[in-house]
Amino acid sequence: MRRFAQTIRLRPEHREEYLALHSAVWPGVEAALHRARIRNYSIHLHDDVLFAYFEYHGEDFDADMADLEADPVTQEWWKLTDPCQEPWPDRGDSRQWTELAEIWHLGEPGEHAAD
């Protein structure tokens, strides 16, 4: 399992729209995320900064993300959510969100940080 953290800015003028969309995420979007082996996905908000966390439970992240990006329901969802977001200028090769490096993780008791 790999943990991912990401961030992006929320455009203030789209705040209510974005929150409304995420109060009832489409079942097809959730199904596509599950097919892509994404688990424990959450999005948090502070002022106009969004922070996302998810766990990937597959073996070929790039292939699973390609399948997710090709999913027609997900593409329709992104047509609504992408205009609400303002990517950070240093996002690199990321489609939209900037990935954050994990610098520390507290695991289960007895689990070592390197595990």
Rank of each mutant, 00 (worst) to 15 (best):
L45Y: 00
V49T: 14
D47P: 07
L45H: 07
F54L: 12
L45Q: 00
A52E: 13
R35N: 01
M65W: 15
Y56D: 11
A36T: 05
H44N: 04
F51I: 02
A52T: 10
E55V: 02
E59N: 14
A63N: 15
A52L: 09
A36W: 01
R39G: 09
E55K: 04
H44R: 03
Y41L: 13
D62T: 08
I43F: 00
L33V: 06
D47T: 04
D62R: 05
S42L: 03
F54A: 09
E59V: 10
E55W: 06
A36S: 15
I38Y: 12
G58S: 06
E59T: 11
L45K: 01
E55Q: 05
F51C: 04
A36P: 04
R35L: 01
H46R: 04
L33S: 09
S42D: 09
F51S: 05
Y53S: 06
H44T: 01
I43N: 02
G58R: 11
G58H: 13
D60Y: 15
H57S: 07
S42C: 13
H34K: 09
R39I: 00
E55M: 06
H44F: 11
D64K: 13
S42V: 07
N40A: 00
L45N: 07
Y53P: 03
F51T: 07
A32C: 14
E59S: 15
G58Y: 10
A63I: 10
S42M: 02
L45M: 08
M65Q: 15
N40Y: 00
